Simulated assay, not measured.
Amino acid sequence: MRIHTAAQLGAAVRARRNADGLTQAALASRAGISRRTLIAIEQGHPAGEIGRVLDVLHALGLDIELAPAPSGRDGDETDLLDVAGQGL
Rank of each mutant, 00 (worst) to 15 (best):
M1T: 05
I3S: 02
I3K: 04
H4W: 08
H4M: 07
T5S: 15
T5M: 08
A6M: 11
A6W: 12
A6H: 12
A7M: 10
Q8C: 08
Q8G: 13
L9R: 02
G10P: 05
G10L: 10
A11T: 06
A12C: 14
R14M: 12
R14N: 06
R14Q: 15
R14I: 03
A15M: 06
R17I: 07
N18M: 10
N18P: 00
D20L: 15
D20Q: 15
G21E: 10
G21S: 09
L22T: 07
T23D: 05
T23V: 09
Q24H: 08
Q24G: 14
A26F: 08
L27V: 11
L27M: 10
S29C: 02
S29E: 15
S29D: 13
R30I: 03
G32R: 10
I33N: 04
S34Q: 01
R35Y: 02
R36A: 10
R36M: 06
T37D: 03
L38K: 01
A40K: 05
G44S: 04
G44I: 08
H45G: 00
P46V: 08
A47F: 09
A47D: 13
A47S: 13
E49P: 01
I50C: 04
R52G: 12
V53F: 06
L54P: 01
D55C: 15
V56D: 05
H58K: 15
H58F: 14
A59G: 06
A59R: 05
A59S: 11
A59C: 07
L60D: 03
L60V: 03
G61I: 09
G61Q: 04
L62P: 01
L62K: 03
E65S: 14
A69R: 11
P70N: 02
P70T: 06
G72L: 02
R73M: 09
D74G: 12
D74M: 06
G75D: 14
D76Y: 09
E77P: 00
T78Y: 08
D79I: 07
L80D: 06
L81D: 00
L81P: 01
D82E: 06
D82P: 00
A84K: 14
A84S: 00
A84M: 06
G85W: 04
Q86W: 00
Q86D: 12
G87Y: 05
